[in-house]
Simulated scan of single mutants.
Amino acid sequence: MNKSSYKALVVEETEQGYVRSVKSRTVEELPAGELLVRVAYSSLNYKDALSCIGNKGVTKHYPHTPGIDAAGIVEHSGSSEFGEGDAVIVTGYDLGMNTAGGFGEYIRVPAAWALKLPTGLSMREAMIFGTAGFTAGISVSRLVERVRPDAGEVLVSGATGGVGSMSVAILSRLGYRVAAMTGKVEERVFLEGLGAGRILPRQSFQESTDRPLLQAQWAGGIDTVGGVILENLIKSIHPQGIVTCCGNVASADLHLTVYPFILRGVSLVGVDSQHCPMADRIRLWEKLADAWKPDMLSSMCTEIFLDDVDACVDRMLAGKLKGRLLVNMQS
């Protein structure tokens, strides 16, 4: 290891609220773990933004360094499965929640949280995917089990967000016809560049109705927002179709009858990337590194540095970002 001190974004709880600043830390302050990793890239996710503003449902104790994603090089290993110099990916588990995360130049984690960077994927590309892309990958993997590309259109909600935009791009890569639902219709060019065949305004899905079923329109759906939008999507899925859900930014409530499930055979599948088993992680990352990697992956992100994260947190919470935000941790 070249140095014992490093830079990290630190969120502190003060009498005036939660304050974010880049500070110098030492590796001795990091938690226990078999792997010490020099972080090359991270990414900004919605969960990171919540940790940055003191959301105790995400992070219980402060001061804290968020960052639920990290890709980097192992500098010290106490595990026979990893050696010094190995490039690794760490996403999910407790990283960046209550364990110091990827917004620091170093992390120390259990070896069970890490996987070796797959062939065909750079560390930069891995963090363009990050948790959002990995979550999209899980969603797509569940959808393709039930829905063939020729079965009809697949609707993706929150399509300009991290998970949504990645879902659009991966589905398009696999030959699906994708309809992108968004509150940012001005981003038509961005979404069409990802492969969306139709752009639909969010307002058309936000009207609540007591009707147990709506006209069947979609072969399947990937929902990232929850609430009424998820309700209406489930009600309008073709027989034997599937909807995956992974977010609740619109609402955590869901008001439905059983009719979509017992009259049309619709499946609702929840997606949790945090606790995905390692064997499944490895298989999915190998797909993302190869057949599922969008051609336009590098153009799907905005690259920033650690000093930029503070301002971008506020923009993310205000819904002013699109695609992925890649954090270059190399100084």
Score class of each variant (00 low, 15 high):
I89N: 05
D307F: 00
G158Q: 13
V168K: 06
I128N: 01
N98E: 12
D310Y: 00
E15F: 12
K116V: 12
D295L: 12
R142V: 06
E187I: 00
A49I: 03
S204A: 12
G161D: 08
I234A: 01
I242T: 14
D48T: 10
G133D: 01
V178A: 05
I73W: 04
L117D: 02
F190G: 01
T224A: 14
V178Q: 11
S5A: 08
Q330V: 09
G195P: 04
Y18A: 02
M316W: 08
W292D: 12
R177T: 15
H238P: 00
N328H: 09
Y41C: 12
A112W: 02
D86I: 09
I237G: 01
G96I: 12
M278T: 14
F129R: 02
H255S: 13
C246A: 07
K56W: 13
A169L: 07
V243M: 09
Y18T: 05
G193F: 03
P294I: 06
Y259D: 10
P260Q: 05
V74Y: 00
T65I: 15
G120R: 13
K23P: 03
L317N: 08
T224Q: 15
T244W: 10
R146S: 13
Y41E: 05
P294C: 07
S79W: 15
A70L: 11
Y18V: 03
S141W: 10
A114H: 10
Y41M: 11
L36H: 03
G130C: 07
G270I: 09
A132G: 15
V88L: 05
L288S: 08
D310A: 03
R177N: 11
K7D: 08
S79F: 15
H61D: 10
S139T: 07
C246P: 07
A151D: 15
V243S: 09
E303V: 13
G152A: 02
Y41A: 11
L143I: 13
L214E: 00
G161A: 04
K7F: 03
H255E: 10
R173G: 04
N248L: 11
S273V: 00
